[in-house]
Amino acid sequence: MSWFDNWHLPKWFYQMASPKWFYDFGARLQPWFAGLALILISWGLVWGLLYAPADYQQGNSFRIIYVHVPAAILGQSLFLFMAVAGAIGLIWKIKVAFMVARSATLVGASFTALALITGAVWGKPTWGTYWVWDARLTSTLILLFLYTGVMALNQAIPDRSVAGRATAILAIIGSINIPIIKYSVDWWNTLHQPSTFTLTSKPSMPPEMYIPLLLMVIGCYCFCAWLIMQRTRNEILDQERQSSWVARYLED
């Protein structure tokens, strides 16, 4: 990738490439994200569960939105995040970027699984069955399959740097395909099940309904930031255990 070599990126970009720098940086940033996540999520939960009005059609089962939608958003954006981190690693040959991508995989997969589970649980009072081949649920299921593929490939290759590169390529191809998959599934769905009642397509939600949702989404982003940093720092400790700075850090 020679044409990238002449790019001059900001200094922090190159600093981030150093495992030691990232380890310290994460340690400094983590408390902020943890605090923000704690405040936002508990604020959103209390508001959503106690104060938000019930939906006029779905009643109180509507409150599932406050965990379902953040989980779905996180699941999707973490796949993209993983692909971007992998691409950065491939282009600039940065080891830490692969570690970040690897740390994000399981987090994204667990949020996608949560979106599926809460979607199914929400489906029971709304549709009468736990599973309906609704467009959104189906594409979430396929997203989970994509995550499974990335995790399986990561597990199958013992060499960390090869695994990082291979999963980065798979994540990039997968994330390029996500819009196509989404489009085709939406289209398939309208063909086979005309105008079913979708869970979350409300044209206008009053602020007392959507502000708690917003709080939950931002809170979950902060939580994921904290978690991915923690997992990346673990990964750094694991892979850099031979280096002198790790020894110096752990001696005192």
């Binding site: 396929i142 399959f145 798979l170 997968g174 395909n177 998959i181 085709s184």
Partner: peptide
């Protein structure tokens, strides 16, 4: 190409490729 060099890649490759075949 991703699974060259991986042992017992048969099941793995279907996990990687089948989701991409859906459209």
């Amino acid at each position: 190409a991703l699974v060259t060099g991986v042992k017992n890649a048969g099941m793995l490759i279907s996990l990687l490729v089948l989701p991409l075949y859906i459209p």
